[in-house]
């Protein structure tokens, strides 16, 4: 579905140019694909390039056989695309129904099925009862649901969602995740987020970006498994923090002391240290830590 070869993107020119993406090679097929990385990793730039909004500096991207380097290719990709940007802007004076209908019009949804399709999408995101209220009266979560409805209204073969669960309450988040998984049965869905749990719960394959470079491409399970033997739980009766190159993933105050969950080498100086089964978050932390140490050595 998507082939990315040696993709590079620079912002600015000359000595002040900043590389947002550095030589990304990636293949994305149908199903859920997760894109994970810290802020500033280049996720949004990659999403915008795949959506045909931003042009690459070098390298090639083909989506469903269409070359994104050409205007015709970009328009062809946009005709099969559903896109939910990270910074979602809507028209506050329109009703949700009117806005989604307007987007359906722009996306070329046939007039005879537009009204039905708009109604279905508003129902799918749980906005049927509020469809005729103005968007300016909506909460942040409701606005995001309008954004999701507009992304889906043309029944896209490629769905790109950038931080889609930001601002959603836990129930809405679960519902939206499930909706994405259902949609991914017969299309490509790219989910960009920095919420590790969202990727772990939904994606079959994933990639990790940091500082514009591809650090990992594989399954969430393999990324988690890579932290096997590096995850520890430590009980610190006096609350002393473990050091020695470990990363504290979480901490809980218990009656016996503070329990830390760590990723890294086995911590010294604690009596109660146990090995823990790794999760995706542990794998991600370990990956980011090794990338930092490699760049530190090179720098």
């Amino acid at each position: 579905m998507i082939e990315i070869k040696a993709l590079t993107k620079m912002y600015g020119r000359g000595p002040r140019a900043v590389a947002a993406l550095r030589g990304i090679d990636l293949e994305i097929g149908r199903g859920m694909f997760g894109l994970l990385g810290p802020n500033g990793a280049g996720k949004t730039t990659l999403m915008r390039i795949l959506a045909g909004i931003v042009r690459a500096a070098s390298g090639g991207v083909r989506v469903d056989g269409h070359d994104l380097a050409t205007e015709a290719g970009r328009l062809a990709v946009k005709s099969i695309l559903g896109y939910l940007p990270q910074e979602l802007g809507l028209y506050p004076d329109l009703t949700a129904r009117r806005f989604v209908d307007y987007m359906a019009l722009l996306k070329g949804v046939e007039p005879e099925r537009r009204t039905r399709r708009v109604g279905e999408m508003l129902e799918a995101v749980g906005l049927s009862r509020d469809a005729d209220r103005k968007i300016k009266e909506f909460s942040g979560g409701m606005k995001r649901r309008v954004g999701i409805a507009q992304a889906l209204v043309n029944d896209p073969r490629l769905l790109i969602v950038d931080e889609p669960t930001a601002g959603l309450d836990p129930e809405e988040r679960i519902r939206f995740r499930n909706l994405l998984v259902e949609l991914a049965l017969d299309r490509a869905v790219i989910l960009s987020t920095h919420i590790v749990e969202d990727i772990g719960q939904t994606c079959r394959t994933m990639a990790v970006l940091a500082k514009g470079k591809l650090l990992y491409h594989g399954s969430p399970r393999e990324l988690a498994a890579a932290a096997e033997g590096s995850v520890w739980t430590v009980l610190s009766p006096d609350g002393r923090k473990p050091d020695g190159g470990t990363v504290i993933v979480s901490m809980i105050h218990l009656a016996e002391g503070v329990q830390y969950r760590l990723v890294g080498p086995r911590p010294d100086g604690f009596a109660d240290v146990g090995r823990a089964a790794p999760g995706l978050e542990d794998g991600y932390v370990r990956l980011m830590r090794s990338a930092d140490s490699v760049s530190g050595e090179n720098g």
């Binding site: 959506a51 045909g52 909004i53 328009l75 062809a76 946009k78 005709s79 695309l81 896109y83 940007p85 910074e87 979602l88 802007g89 809507l90 028209y91 506050p92 987007m103 722009l106 996306k107 070329g108 954004g147 507009q150």
Partner: peptide, 14 residues
Amino acid sequence: DDPALEILFSTPVP
């Protein structure tokens, strides 16, 4: 002066 510019750019409208 359009808050929905990024979404509009993702549509197949020249």
